[in-house]
Structures are given as structure tokens and as C-alpha cells.
Design a protein around this nucleic acid. Structure first.
Lengths: 200, 200
DNA sequence: GTTAGCATGTAAGGAGTTACATGATTTT
DNA sequence: AAAATCATGTAACTCCTTACATGCTAAC
């Protein structure tokens, strides 16, 4: 079948968000901002085709309108509410456990972290350590690069690079803090490990 | 038809780098890292077509091999050294002066800053102020967003958002420092800004 | 009764990547 | 002689954006 060509971060973000309950595209899009990089709002031109694809792949399904909980919401245009299928849940679980090297890159790391609440503790730790490692490599490269040609750089380039360096250092510190908490067994402010009270 | 529909950051980065002297693609590519975002290495599959396009558009030209300074460099494969044309210089100058709102976005701001050494002082100031403004807007959005649903966020999402917030705050401080220097007429100092690194 | 916001979708295209193809030169 | 590095280039494909097209409901 091979329907899912590339692992499409977007798909996983959608799967993750739908764990909070059924949602329609418009709502999903707003929520995506908090999950994908701190900024960046995916456009509808990306989201809707993605949802269509996931529907065809059986990862999500249209939620029947027979929701007794909110009958008065009938307003507005006919909207399509999606929910997770068992396949979708499986796919998401498989992804959570897939902490390969890409998970340490800027883009994926953020999304992984966003779903740490549903990630196994050992996987969390591996991702945090891997990420810190990646950043330390980067730090080394940056530092050697700056040292190598410090004289040939003008003041602005230097400031820029220094600021970048400081930022990475800060992220390393932050990660170290998270790692320590994770090892000590007390995450930032622990709730029941695993899925909290799944609302709804 | 000059075919340069979109202003292609890459083109401007290349034009800027070639101000340091003629270069061939392979070398250019390595230098691009320092100019485009702190990381991110453009692939050859992007760079070479871009150079071809710029050549066709008359922004750059092949540098004659008649370089008396270093004739013994004949080693290696035939390499194509590019130099700026007057049109290329003009285009670059025009771009430097074009400090529209896009210049305040993450991607373009870095490149602009990298070429501040060749930018007019009033343009520099405008870009710095514009950038700071953009970040402060972002800060406001982030803060209101966090306040609005602080309870519904799990600890990891919270930490992630808090870290993002801190990073933006730090960048604002850094910018303020640069802006002050610019107004006072002092060149920027590369020493870390008031918000020191790595002090918890 | 028109504007603004909610809601879904498509078509065209831009910017970039990977994988491939080629070939010279230096190092091991 | 094999492997690494230097060096250039192309084709196919991915992911995303913009601009467009549609239509419903609420508020002014």
C-alpha cells in the first residue's frame, strides 16, 4: 500500500492533538501553533489535504454528528469533525517510540517534547540526552568556527554569532535541568506518570 | 525576462559574500552557513541552479582565469569562479536599502544583520527597531496564550513554552543593547549582553 | 444588507532536499 | 589501487504557501 510516503510531522501533530478529543480542521489548525515550533501556523492549504490523506489512510475517521454532549453547537457551516481510529492511535504510539536521530533536530524535537506526556520515560530521557548531545556538537562547531576567523569577522557578524552561541548554551542548560529532573524521578511538577486525566 | 520572481534570500547571500572577492560554488557553499541562520547548510542542488540563474540574469559573471596573483592553483577539477557584475552590486545595494517588514522575520533578519557592515546607519536602526517590535508582539501573544490556558497545559508543554518565551526575551534585550549602541554611535561589542549566559 | 468570522477546499507554484551522475586530485 | 576530498551538475520529489473559490452564520 505504501500510502504514507514520508512521515510528515504534520500528521503526527494531528494524531497527537486528536488524543485530546475529536476536532475539526479549523480548530486543529489553531492548536497546531503550540505544537509545531513556537510560532509557525500551518496554512489550510497544507492542513486539509493532509487530513484527507490521513482519512484515506484510515488514521482518522469522521466523527458521527450524534454527539449528545453538545447539541446546541449546530450553528455555522457543516463542519467535519475528525476522531482517531485504532490505527491512528497505533501509528502515534509507534512514532512516540521512534526516537531516532531526527528526533534531536530542531524541528522534530519540539513536537516530541510537546507529546512527552504520552511518551515512555526511557524514551523521554533518550530524546533529551540525544538533543543535548546534538547541541553540544553544534556548540563545538560554532566555537571552533569563531575562533578560527575571529579577526576576519566584522562586529555585527560577531555579535550575531555570539548571540547564537549564548542561545544554544542556554538551551543546553535548560535540557540539563530537564534531564536531572527526569533522572531524579520528579518531572517539572509531577502528575501521574503517563496519560493524565484524559478529559472528555 | 530576468526571471527573478521572488527575492530568493539565497541570491542576496551570494551577492553579499561575493563582495569579499571572487569565489567558486563549493567555497561559497561553506561560507553560506555563517550567513544564513546560524546553522543550515544549503545543498548543492540548490546552490548551483541558483548560480546558473544569477549568471543568466547578469548579476554575477565568470571570473577570468587570468589571475596573476595565484597562477599555480591549477590543481583540482576545473572550477568556476564567480565575481560580481555592476548589476549584481546594484541589486545588492537596492536590497540593503529595502528594509520592509519581511526584514524583521526570523529568516531575513539574520541575513540582513550579517551584512550590516555594508548597510546605512539609518537602515540598520530601522531594521533593529522593527525586529524588536516584531518580537515584542510575539512576546505579547505568547504571554496571553500561556495565561489563557495555563491550567490545561501539561508540564512539558509549559516548560517548552516558557523556554521559548525566555529566548525571545533574551533576544529583545540583545536588540536593545544593539539599538543603544547604534544611537550612541558606538560600534557593538560582542561581549555577552546583560543577560549573561549560563548563570542559573 | 453588508461585513466579519467560521469553515472547507483546490490549483499553481516556490524553495529546498535527496539521490544520482561525473570526474579530478590528494592521501592512505 | 582504494578511499577521501574537491568540484560541478541534474532530476525527481517533498513540503509548504499563496491565491482563489465556496458558502454558512452572527453581528453591526
Amino acid at each position: 500500500m505504501a500510502a504514507t510516503k514520508r512521515a510528515h510531522v504534520l500528521q503526527f501533530a494531528v494524531l497527537g492533538l486528536l488524543h485530546e478529543g475529536p476536532m475539526h480542521g479549523y480548530e486543529l489548525r489553531k492548536r497546531l501553533n503550540s505544537v509545531l515550533g513556537t510560532f509557525r501556523a500551518i496554512s489550510y492549504g497544507s492542513l486539509y489535504p493532509c487530513l484527507k490523506e490521513m482519512l484515506a489512510a484510515g488514521l482518522i475517521a469522521e466523527d458521527g454528528p450524534a454527539d449528545a454532549g453538545a447539541p446546541a453547537l449546530s450553528g455555522r457551516r457543516a463542519r467535519i469533525v475528525y476522531k482517531l481510529t485504532p490505527e491512528g492511535k497505533d501509528r502515534f504510539q509507534a512514532w512516540l517510540a521512534d526516537a531516532g536521530p531526527e528526533a534531536y533536530e530542531d524541528e522534530l524535537f519540539g513536537v516530541h517534547l510537546a507529546f512527552f506526556g504520552r511518551t515512555d520515560r526511557d524514551i523521554r530521557l533518550r530524546i533529551l540526552l540525544g538533543r543535548r548531545n546534538r547541541l553540544e556538537e553544534r556548540l563545538a562547531t560554532l566555537r571552533s568556527n569563531m575562533a578560527k576567523r575571529r579577526e576576519r569577522l566584522d562586529e555585527w557578524t560577531l555579535t550575531l554569532q555570539q548571540h547564537g552561541l549564548d542561545s544554544v548554551e542556554r538551551e543546553v542548560d535548560w535540557l540539563s535541568h530537564l534531564i536531572d529532573s527526569e533522572i531524579d524521578g520528579n518531572p517539572p511538577s509531577s502528575t501521574s506518570t503517563g496519560t493524565g486525566p484524559a478529559s472528555k
